[in-house]
Lab assay of single mutants.
Amino acid sequence: AVTGSQTALLLRAFEKDRFPGIAAREELARETGLPESRIQIWFQNRR
């Protein structure tokens, strides 16, 4: 499950760019500790 702090970080990124590229998703994966594929799905679901 995604924690509150991970969600906050993802929401901030989403406000800046609703369609992040692979580099941005990989950076978010490093920052959150989540797999990049999970980040991609999160953005798809959020849109």
Rank of each mutant, 00 (worst) to 15 (best):
Q44A: 11
S5R: 14
P20M: 03
A1E: 14
R18F: 04
R12G: 04
G33R: 03
T7L: 15
S5L: 14
F43N: 00
T32A: 04
I41L: 12
L9R: 08
G4E: 15
D17S: 08
F14H: 00
R12V: 07
L28S: 00
G33W: 02
E15V: 08
V2Y: 13
A23I: 10
A8W: 08
L9F: 09
T7C: 15
I39T: 00
R46Y: 11
R47Y: 04
P35L: 08
R30Y: 06
G21L: 05
Q40G: 07
S5C: 15
L28P: 01
I39W: 00
I39N: 02
L28E: 02
Q40C: 14
S37P: 10
N45E: 14
Q44H: 10
A29W: 02
I39K: 02
Q40N: 13
G21Y: 02
Q6K: 05
L11D: 06
W42N: 01
A24R: 11
R47E: 04
T7F: 15
L28Q: 00
R18G: 05
E27M: 12
R38D: 14
I22K: 15
Q40S: 11
R47D: 04
F14W: 12
R12Y: 06
T7R: 14
A29F: 03
R47H: 04
F14E: 01
P20E: 00
L9P: 00
Q6C: 08
L28V: 03
L34C: 04
S37R: 11
A23K: 13
D17M: 06
T7W: 15
N45L: 12
A1Q: 13
A13I: 05
L11H: 05
L34S: 01
R47K: 03
F14T: 02
L10K: 02
A29P: 00
F43I: 02
S37C: 13
I41T: 10
A13W: 11
A8I: 13
E27Y: 09
F43K: 02
E26F: 08
A29D: 01
A1K: 13
G4L: 14
N45M: 12
A24F: 07
R47F: 04
E36Y: 05
T3Y: 05
E15Y: 11
G33E: 03
P20N: 01
R46G: 03
R47L: 08
Q40I: 12
G4C: 15
L28D: 00
A23V: 10
G4S: 14
V2E: 08
Q6L: 08
A1P: 12
G4W: 10
D17R: 03
P20G: 02
L11N: 10
F19W: 13
T7P: 00
E36C: 06
R38S: 13
G4M: 14
P20K: 02
D17P: 01
A29R: 03
I39M: 01
L34N: 00
L9C: 09
E15I: 10
L11F: 05
A1Y: 13
A8L: 13
R30T: 05
P20S: 01
Q6T: 07
F14C: 02
